[in-house]
Design a protein around this nucleic acid. Structure first.
Lengths: 212, 212
DNA sequence: CTCGTAGGCGTACAACGTACTCCTAAAATC
DNA sequence: GATTTTAGGAGTACGTTGTACGCCTACGAG
């Protein structure tokens, strides 16, 4: 009976994401998104009640590109988790400005819930259950969230390589030396290295020896 | 020759932190901080050039309460790192609203650099060096940053226990079951459990067996 | 004394999110 | 085809934010 909506939430989110990619987080205003859609500012409020809701749509759009199906062809559960984690990183990397939004709206994303479901399945196959599985998932998520943010908001490798350069070397001997190494490490290598640490730690502490 | 400043950066930061604790992040405005200090809004700009600079002062104030000296009396390096990590968590926990700010201004905090220096020292004693040490520090920081945020911004345990309740159980079997467990786990237990994962993973992969 | 800088106030502006109102357009019902 | 129901969309306006700017005053060193 009513007139059909002429804009899908997806189109809305795409427009907002386009603005976000072009002008960054500070440029993501209701007016800018409205202009992008060639409509008046207030027209947006026909589709969202809030700026927050718009943000959530953008986050969902980004996470929506994450394939939630379990990877196949990987015997080792660690490899499968690695693939799942990489899928999220790749999705977010494609739109760096979305990073701060993902943290705030993480829990509203169905796509990320699907992702969690699959990861939980893999963890289950790995022999984890109950409380241990909760903590494993949470630990993985914590690392993922933290690592992505450090990568995009944290100047350079290490805690701000630039700042470290102008530091009294006698007070910060390790930091100075570490910065030298940090400069040569690619972000991807750093990310994977950290992920390896977490994955190693996830192995059953009762039977730390790998089947390989 | 000039008139001395009548307000130290520390007093400024304390006032801002008081506002932050009382009114939350949204309440932290230049006007609110000025009122807290019983001065005009623009008077603040005698001390900071920016709102961002004010935020950085607050973050530094919070991190300044973290004891950067290496813990003594702990034979195992893992226990010493645990203590260092807990110090940061405690400091941030005392002012939850500061969490979003810590991420943005993390790299400007000298206190956090001191903390990193100490942690690097411990990692060195643990036998890590070069690139492995960089990645270890970065991995620890990633987990720390992520875990603290999940704890404070992530509704409940697991990725939003509330949302999960209204989810089709046949599509999310693991998530539903996991949520049951998650509800019973204390945040501290979750945090420590995740930290244990990282610490286990930090152990030399060439010699995974613990001395114990 | 006086000079240079900090202290501090008040005004003003641009940009933001968004509440509200008014009119038009189009599909479903009769 | 007329009527009804809802979405579409524009325009105006308000409160709040950060902050640029200008103006005096207070004070300590020379």
């Amino acid at each position: 009976m009513p007139r059909p909506r002429s804009l899908t939430p997806d189109q809305l989110a795409s427009a907002a994401l386009a603005v976000l990619d072009r002008d960054g987080l500070a440029g993501l205003t209701m007016r800018a998104v409205a202009t992008q859609l060639r409509m008046s500012t207030m027209g947006l409020y026909r589709y969202v009640t809030d700026r927050a809701e718009l943000e959530a749509l953008v986050v969902e759009l980004v996470f929506g590109t994450v394939d939630p199906t379990p990877p196949t062809g990987q015997a080792d559960w660690r490899d499968r988790i690695r693939i799942m984690v990489h899928r999220v990183r790749r999705a977010v990397d494609a739109h760096p400005a979305v990073v701060p939004l993902t943290v705030a709206h993480r829990h509203t994303s169905v796509s990320l819930l699907r992702w969690s479901e699959t990861v939980l399945g893999i963890l289950t196959e790995a022999g984890l259950d109950g409380g241990r599985r909760v903590i494993a998932l949470r630990g993985l998520l914590s690392y993922l969230v933290g690592a992505i943010q450090l990568e995009h908001l944290g100047a350079l490798a290490g805690p701000g390589t630039g700042v470290i350069a102008g530091l009294p070397p006698d007070e910060f001997p390790h930091l100075g030396e570490t910065a030298q190494y940090a400069r040569r490490i690619e972000p991807a290598e750093e990310f994977d290295g950290g992920l390896d640490i977490v994955l190693r730690g996830l192995a059953d502490p009762v039977a730390p020896a790998d089947p390989e």
